[in-house]
């Protein structure tokens, strides 16, 4: 059964989300990947203000393809999350409530999730055309010069994802094998 959830995420909703739950997400989320994370992290390290408010937000690790005329966005599936592991704990400590990506996270990220009560969703890697149908509108928020790697705001309806790691640190990802 798919659980419908709305953004921004409240602590009450986060507490109900358990690893393995299939969800349909509606609301607005930030996007960002390697280059934008590096910039945000460097600003936090330098004690400078961020160009976007991340408090209470969910960030989607994505670099969309260009939109065809008549489409709100091009195909926009998740990118590998582990590349953001170096930067994610600092963002979670600054109030970020959720992340959407694909694949493994390291222990530092999971610890920061537990510490701050956050959730990590997996979107299906490669299901980019399907996922783009749930993205209704996009705006550029920051780092326009990064092109596909800029920080966008995505307005989504019934965006399909799975709770990969919940706020207690339980994971559904198969990370090792015999």
């Amino acid at each position: 059964m798919k659980k419908k959830i709305h953004l921004p995420l409240t602590d009450e909703v986060i507490r109900t989300l358990k690893a393995g739950d299939s969800v349909l997400i509606t609301g607005s989320m930030l996007t960002g990947r390697d280059a934008a994370h590096k910039r945000l992290y460097e600003l936090i390290e330098a004690g400078k203000p961020l160009p976007v408010n991340i408090d209470g937000e969910v960030i989607y690790y994505v670099g969309p393809a260009p939109a065809k005329p008549g489409h709100a966005v091009g195909p926009a599936g998740p990118t590998s999350s582990y590349r953001m592991d170096k930067y994610a704990p600092a963002l979670l400590d600054r109030g970020l409530k959720g992340m959407i990506g694909k694949g493994k996270r390291n222990k530092e990220v999971v610890d920061a999730m537990i510490r701050n009560g956050c959730v990590y969703f997996a979107a299906i890697g490669g299901a980019a055309a399907l996922i783009s149908r749930s993205i209704k509108k996009i705006e550029t928020l920051a780092y326009d010069d990064l092109g596909t790697e800029a920080i966008y705001r995505f307005y989504v309806e019934d965006f399909p994802a799975i709770v990969a790691i919940d706020a207690d640190g339980n994971s559904i990802l198969v990370e090792s094998a015999p």
Binding site: A65, H71, G74, P75, A76, T79, A127, A129, R133
Partner: peptide
């Protein structure tokens, strides 16, 4: 289903082309 949509709309299967 993703592959069907991509072919039908002639859009990339994956954003990482």
């Amino acid at each position: 289903e993703n592959n069907r949509i991509a072919a039908e709309e002639e859009i990339p299967i994956c954003q990482d082309t």
